[in-house]
Computed example of a mutant assay.
Amino acid sequence: MVENRPFLNFLTHLVLILGIAMVVFPVYLAFIASTRGPSDFLTGVVPLTPGTQMIQNYGVLLGAGASNAGAPPFLLMLGNSLVMAILVAIGKIAISIISAFAIVYFRFPFRVVAFWIIFMTLMLPIEVRILPTYKVVADLGLLNSYSGLVIPVIASATATFLFRQFFLTVPEEMMEAARVDGAGALKFFWDILLPLSRTNIAALFIIMFIYGWNQYLWPMLITTEPRYYTVVMGIKRLAAVLEGDTQWNLVMAGVILAALPPVLVIIFMQRLFVKGLVETEK
């Protein structure tokens, strides 16, 4: 039985509220800045109430104003980031779940060695292997393309490991029963394992979507044409103007717009995301 201790309940809620405030307050300031003029935050006094230029700032950013401020059209960059994030998430899940299925349910030489080689790549992020990866992509003619943006970052040792651990918890009797019913390997995978992995897939989709959405170094390296710029690159270009003062109201408006898609994905998939992290369905 859990004891009712008012002081501990108060302390717990106080810590929770403080933690939420520390996370939300910078986002709130970014929103406030996106509703004010370009010089309001340069006076030394930080306003805490929304301004009157919200519609104007977002209209300028989503129109031709981003180009005038040193970045391609913002809607185009949002679309590029959305395409990259979705393809990266789907690709990582598809490759990882098939790899884990092969490692767990098929008997072939060096399958354990293959798994540990995949697992060891966790120690090699893209920043470490970026030069040879760029060389391969350039030789294949994938610079300035969606394929070049997605394919080099599409493999995931983390997702492979998580799917493998989940598949190991599935009772062997289930596979034997499917085999007795005449189900082959693909049918067992499609009709049984995939439905059981639904919550895990949802949790990993959110994580991988955010990973793809936040990519900056790799898109900056392989894209030289503005029509392939991502939204993170666009925000950097808005903040690093060559002439004149940085229009921080437009930069903050871009930050708010860039934060909306990941937030919406988390909100709509929250239930499956939590179940995928804390539950194991069988």
Rank of each mutant, 00 (worst) to 15 (best):
D139P: 02
A102K: 02
A178S: 13
A185P: 02
S99I: 00
L82A: 14
I118G: 01
F119D: 02
M120F: 12
A183I: 03
S145Q: 05
P132A: 03
V153L: 15
F189G: 03
V170L: 14
A85P: 03
M123P: 01
M174G: 10
F189E: 01
S99Q: 07
R111A: 11
M77E: 09
I117S: 09
A157M: 11
L149R: 11
A157L: 07
G70V: 08
I103C: 05
Y105P: 06
I98N: 06
M120Y: 07
F167N: 08
F108Q: 07
A71Q: 04
V150M: 10
G182D: 04
I130C: 06
M77F: 07
V153T: 13
F166V: 13
G184A: 08
V83E: 08
R111K: 14
I103L: 15
A89M: 08
M175A: 15
T133R: 02
M84Q: 14
W116F: 15
G141N: 12
F110P: 03
T158F: 15
I130T: 04
I130W: 06
V88S: 06
A71N: 08
I151C: 09
D139T: 03
L82W: 05
F188V: 03
I103P: 06
L82S: 13
W190I: 11
V104P: 02
T160V: 15
V112F: 05
